[in-house]
Amino acid sequence: MSIQFRFLLGISLSITLTGCFSNNRHQGEKLYAQKCASCHGEQGQGLGRLIPPIAGSDYLTDHRAELPCLLRNGQNEVIVVNGVGYHNVMPGNKSLSPAQVTNLLNYIESHWGNEAAPRTISDVQAQLDKCH
């Protein structure tokens, strides 16, 4: 294999791989905008006493292991966020893949004052496997 061919192959592979990864690079942010922001707000601020905030939310840290199931199945019980009780139904989304759930949670948990450790797809998959 000539040096020129290897060089061109390397550049071609690099461009291809970059394209693959760039498609999901901002997936969490896009999913939040599409599926969450209409209720929880563009900056995760929530809506008064109707919809809980995600920004600076103690619920995210206190219920970290439950969040993948909450996104997948929704919830209809009273929850307490930052000392305020909320009792509105949150629809789930069973069509989200484990990778999408991971990217969405990694986005939410690293913005608006939230500082959780990043999740891996395998961790999220294990938590999703435990959902009822």
Results as ranks from 00 to 15, higher is better:
70 L>N: 10
11 I>M: 13
88 N>L: 13
56 G>T: 05
67 L>D: 03
89 V>D: 07
6 R>V: 04
82 N>A: 12
80 V>P: 01
16 T>R: 00
128 L>H: 09
119 R>G: 07
115 E>T: 14
123 D>C: 03
30 K>T: 13
123 D>L: 13
102 T>L: 02
49 R>D: 12
78 V>S: 13
59 Y>E: 08
91 P>L: 08
91 P>Y: 08
6 R>E: 09
58 D>I: 08
28 G>L: 00
86 Y>A: 10
21 F>N: 00
128 L>K: 11
8 L>G: 02
121 I>K: 13
124 V>Y: 11
5 F>C: 04
57 S>Q: 09
22 S>F: 05
86 Y>P: 11
36 C>K: 01
127 Q>D: 15
25 R>M: 06
77 E>V: 10
67 L>P: 04
66 E>P: 00
47 L>T: 01
75 Q>I: 14
61 T>L: 14
101 V>K: 06
79 I>V: 15
22 S>P: 00
129 D>C: 04
65 A>Q: 08
101 V>N: 06
56 G>Y: 01
46 G>W: 01
83 G>C: 07
16 T>Q: 00
39 C>G: 10
82 N>H: 03
120 T>G: 12
61 T>A: 13
32 Y>K: 00
20 C>H: 00
101 V>W: 11
10 G>C: 07
37 A>W: 00
127 Q>I: 02
40 H>V: 02
68 P>A: 01
17 L>E: 00
123 D>T: 14
10 G>A: 15
67 L>N: 02
33 A>S: 07
82 N>Q: 13
114 N>T: 12
94 K>Q: 11
74 G>N: 06
118 P>R: 15
59 Y>P: 03
66 E>L: 05
57 S>G: 14
72 R>E: 11
40 H>W: 05
16 T>G: 03
58 D>H: 14
37 A>M: 01
79 I>W: 05
51 I>L: 07
18 T>A: 14
63 H>A: 03
112 W>A: 03
124 V>E: 04
3 I>F: 12
38 S>L: 13
110 S>P: 12
130 K>G: 00
107 Y>A: 02
86 Y>C: 10
115 E>N: 15
130 K>A: 14
37 A>Q: 05
130 K>H: 01
51 I>Y: 11
113 G>E: 13
124 V>C: 07
14 S>N: 01
30 K>Y: 05
129 D>F: 03
82 N>Y: 04
6 R>P: 02
74 G>R: 04
105 L>H: 06
113 G>A: 11
117 A>P: 14
20 C>F: 14
2 S>C: 02
62 D>Q: 14
127 Q>L: 14
59 Y>G: 08
39 C>M: 03
34 Q>G: 01
54 I>C: 06
119 R>S: 10
19 G>P: 00
113 G>F: 11
